[in-house]
Design a protein around this nucleic acid. Structure first.
Length: 438
RNA sequence: GGAGAGGUGCCUGAGUGGUCGAAAGGGGCACCCUGCUAAGGUGUUGUUCCGUUUAUCGGAACCGAGGGUUCGAAUCCCUCCCUCUCCGCCA
């Protein structure tokens, strides 16, 4: 969400963002509706002032017949105007939530992911002098991932982690969490079952409300919802990442400037319905309905320079995690056409996955400026007592499945065993350095 | 799950149909007085939107959220959300 005044005053820049981000939005229509909206507000305020005046003149005594008649007339007019305003506000809102953040001048302009720019590459993909296995084979052979029973119990894309697989997953989470704590992040384990506004706030819904065509999100229905055919309880949703729950932590609050920037790292299970990706990455751990993740999030003052610095700082942490674990990686700068509407600038991390012969996404670092803070209404007070929306940023630290894929495949040995990256060993039972066949 | 109580400004808390954006106290801020500290006095103290302006003024909305009744609602009615107490159930 942007400020309508900003949109009015920076029409060209916003129009260009709409174009470069390929957003289906008619800006002129929005501005027209805005004008109508303001006209109605003026009329409505006037009518309400009249009502107030009349009510005041009646004071303690019984109102006269004329006053009642007059009041009824005003009442009707207010009702009419309120209805008009209501429907125009709906239209206004529908368009407003589509207005994108104007991307950074540094963000490459491009139509889709084919125009993302590789800006950094680190580490060499391993050369195997034997026939390497993919992570599914390794998982089965070492008895650390069970896909068949996962599907039996959970359905398509279900899986079990077991033995060192389970330990490795927890080790990754602990390692990421400790790393971030050492960098000054506050650890949190947020709720994963959240209200609608939480996901809207992060930008998950195109509108203010969940729409049935949503690709990613699980909606939770309770028994109460179906009683009498009317909704009696608020619906809940499962988060796809800790980000929305971490950002909504301060929703509706005015923060103390001295507390900024706020750096938070969250551990959470993540749920993704992946409805839009049937038939894509159907094998293995690459695309699953649930996994665990440690996420980084920052809230800072409305200052682009500071936000940019935090963005780079978080990206640097991601690189460090990849380097320390020993995964060859590359960093992509995401182009305007592949960037979400709310984003100012965005980078993807990708780790080398031998069985794909390619890099696969392991994280995403985004700067939203105040786009999310406006939706969540998170502000801070400046020195001169001015209230401003904070800037919000987020970045993955470690998602469990894709790191596990990359570790298993990159660290496999000729004898079928897998070495455990040095930094993870202290979190493995018995400091296990190798995962062997039982 | 059953029974009850309640959600008001930065905080405590009054307000059950009109004079209430809201008493009172506390806190904060400004000034005054008082020869330290302390105490006292006066004033001030929310958010959002719209218009005007460019920094002033005017108007509207907001007393958990949404809807309703009324000429008029913080106050009455309905639904929901949340908090607290007791009982039950589960861990």
């Amino acid at each position: 969400m942007l400020d309508i005044n900003f949109i009015r005053e920076n029409k060209e820049a916003v129009a260009e963002a709409v174009k470069n981000k390929k957003i289906d939005l008619n800006l002129d229509q929005l501005l027209e509706i805005d004008e109508k909206r303001r006209k109605i507000i003026v009329e409505l305020d006037k009518a309400r002032a009249e009502r107030k005046e009349l009510a005041k003149s009646a004071k303690g005594e019984k109102p006269t017949q004329e006053q009642i008649e007059e009041g009824k007339k005003i009442k009707q007019e207010i009702a009419k105007l309120e209805e008009e305003l209501g429907s125009i506000n709906d239209e206004f809102e529908k368009l407003m939530v589509k207005v994108p953040t104007v991307p950074s001048k540094d963000a490459p302009i491009g139509k889709d992911d084919s125009e993302n720019v590789e800006i950094e590459k680190h580490g060499e993909p391993p050369e195997f002098d034997f026939q390497p296995k993919d992570h599914m084979q390794l998982g089965r052979d070492l008895d650390i991932i069970d896909f068949e029973r996962g599907v039996k119990v959970s359905g398509y894309r279900g899986y079990y982690m077991k033995n060192e697989g389970a330990s490795l997953q927890m080790a990754l989470m602990m390692y990421a969490l400790e790393k971030l704590i050492s960098k000054g992040f506050t650890p949190m384990i947020p709720p994963t079952l959240v209200k609608e506004f939480v996901l809207f706030g992060s930008g998950y819904f195109a509108g203010r409300h969940f729409d049935e065509n949503q690709d990613e999100v699980y909606k939770i229905a309770t028994k109460d919802l179906e009683a009498d055919g009317k909704t009696s309880k608020e619906e809940k949703f499962l988060i796809g990442t800790a980000e929305p729950a971490l950002l909504a932590y301060h929703a509706g609050e005015v923060l103390d400037k001295s507390k900024l920037p706020l750096k938070i790292c969250g551990f959470s299970p993540c749920y993704r319905s992946e409805i839009g990706s049937y038939g894509k990455d159907t094998k293995g751990l690459y695309r699953v309905h649930e996994f665990m993740k440690v996420e980084q999030v920052c809230l800072c003052e409305a200052d682009k320079e500071q936000a940019e610095k935090l963005h780079m700082e978080m990206l640097e942490i991601s690189k460090e995690l990849h380097r320390e674990i020993g995964l060859p990686y590359r960093v992509l700068e995401i182009c305007t056409g592949d960037m979400g509407p709310g984003k100012y600038r965005m980078f993807d991390m990708e780790a080398w996955i031998p069985s794909r012969g390619d890099y696969g996404e392991t994280g995403s670092a985004s700067n939203f400026l105040d786009w999310q803070a406006r939706r969540l209404n998170v502000k801070y007070k400046t020195e001169d007592d001015e209230k401003k929306f904070v800037y919000m940023l987020n970045n993955t630290a470690i998602p469990s499945p894709r790191f596990i894929i990359s570790i298993l495949e990159n660290y496999q040995q000729e004898d079928g065993s897998v070495k455990v990256p040095e930094v993870l060993r202290k979190y493995m039972p018995g400091n296990a350095g190798v995962i062997k066949k039982k």
